[in-house]
């Protein structure tokens, strides 16, 4: 009993650590959040050069002021139906820590909503089911005005992707 309580406590502390500002965006009618500290910039859709021999969710690379950075389509990554890019489609450039050091990666989302302040008390652990994506990618679920936001662990999302990318290309 006490042990269970302690465990719950620990979980709560862990969730408390996740409080802070999140950039929210939509993807297939669901709201997601990205830690604002990870976000480098938000850019509109631009010409993406496809890289052959890579999985479909790797859209390719873009020229970000002279630097070549990869772009991932989050819809495809999460196995959601693809959507034609439109006016509101954005690329969020995030800093992620990969196994090979820090890299910048662009993620394509349907649209960017707002920057939200999420309190530790509003975050609950990811449910075992009921969401469209792999729970391993989720930091937690935040209750906020107008519904819930899925807080993404972007390092995880892109780390898994990195492995996939490497395996594919070395074949």
């Amino acid at each position: 009993m006490a042990q269970a309580a302690r465990q719950l406590d620990q979980e709560n502390t862990a969730l408390h650590d996740k409080e802070g500002k999140y950039l929210t965006f939509t993807l297939a009618d669901e709201d997601y959040g990205l830690e604002i500290l990870k976000v480098r910039e938000i850019i509109g859709m631009m010409g993406i050069t496809a890289i052959p021999q890579t999985p479909p969710y790797i859209k390719g690379v873009i020229n970000l002021r002279g630097r070549v950075i990869p772009v991932i389509d989050l819809r495809l990554k999460f196995g959601l139906p693809s959507l034609e890019y439109g006016e509101r489609t954005c690329i969020i450039v995030v800093d992620v820590l990969s196994r090979l050091g820090p890299v910048q990666v662009g993620v394509v989302v349907d649209s960017v909503s707002e920057v939200l302040n999420v309190g530790g008390g509003d975050i609950t652990p990811p449910p075992a089911f009921g969401v469209q994506i792999d729970t391993g990618y989720i930091l937690g679920i935040a209750k906020a005005k107008g519904g819930i936001k899925i807080l993404l662990d972007i390092d995880r999302v892109l780390a898994a992707e990195e492995l996939a990318g490497l395996e594919k290309s070395s074949g």
Partner: peptide
């Protein structure tokens, strides 16, 4: 020449 970055380090043919 610019690097494709660590993600595509071993992309063959490139």
């Amino acid at each position: 020449i610019k690097s494709l970055g660590p993600l595509f380090q071993s992309a063959s043919g490139l």
